[in-house]
């Protein structure tokens, strides 16, 4: 057996998928001519990969048409700038919330502080908006790498 780094299983996988550079492929071809162990490994690999089924999804014309219609309808309904729409909705919500917190005549008035509760709520809601984006794209989870 003359198995070396050139003939690792990963190299054989890349050889099978024709993903080696021409120099790497040539070197491996030379090696395979002299190494029966690696030749057998390659044959086994190719046989097992050929046995993996390739299920196909057939979609009828009617279903394709239905899908296209559904997507087009949704596209027409959906606001083009959804971030702006979200921002607008949250800003309106914050404004309404701030109005509720306005002191009435019968209540002891407190001098409004620039960093008071309404501002804090707005910041919290903006944070929530960021969280919504994170939930959508899961970039944070990708960075955490825990789910790979």
């Amino acid at each position: 057996m003359n198995r070396d780094k050139q003939c690792s299983e990963e190299q054989l996988v890349l050889y099978h998928y024709d993903e080696l550079s021409s120099a790497e492929r040539q070197a491996l071809d030379v090696h395979l001519n002299t190494c029966s162990h690696c030749r057998t490994s390659l044959e086994e690999l190719q046989a097992s990969l050929a046995a993996i089924p390739r299920p196909e999804l057939q979609i009828s014309k009617a279903r394709k048409l239905q899908f296209a219609e559904r997507v087009t309808k949704r596209a027409q309904r959906r606001p083009k700038n959804y971030r702006a729409a979200w921002g607008g909705a949250l800003a309106t919500g914050a404004l309404v919330f701030a109005m509720f917190l306005q002191p009435t005549e019968n209540v002891v008035t407190v001098t409004p502080n620039p960093s008071s509760i309404p501002d804090f709520e707005v910041i919290e809601m903006l944070d929530m908006l960021q969280d919504l984006d994170l939930l959508k794209d899961l970039d944070l989870l990708q960075e955490m790498g825990q789910l790979r």
Binding site: E56, L57, I59, K64, L65, F67, A68, E69, V71, T72
Partner: peptide
């Protein structure tokens, strides 16, 4: 036209 683009690509993309 957008619907036609969807129709052109939907099969491969859904698949």
């Amino acid at each position: 036209a957008f619907a036609q683009l969807v129709d052109l690509h939907s099969e491969r993309i859904i698949s």
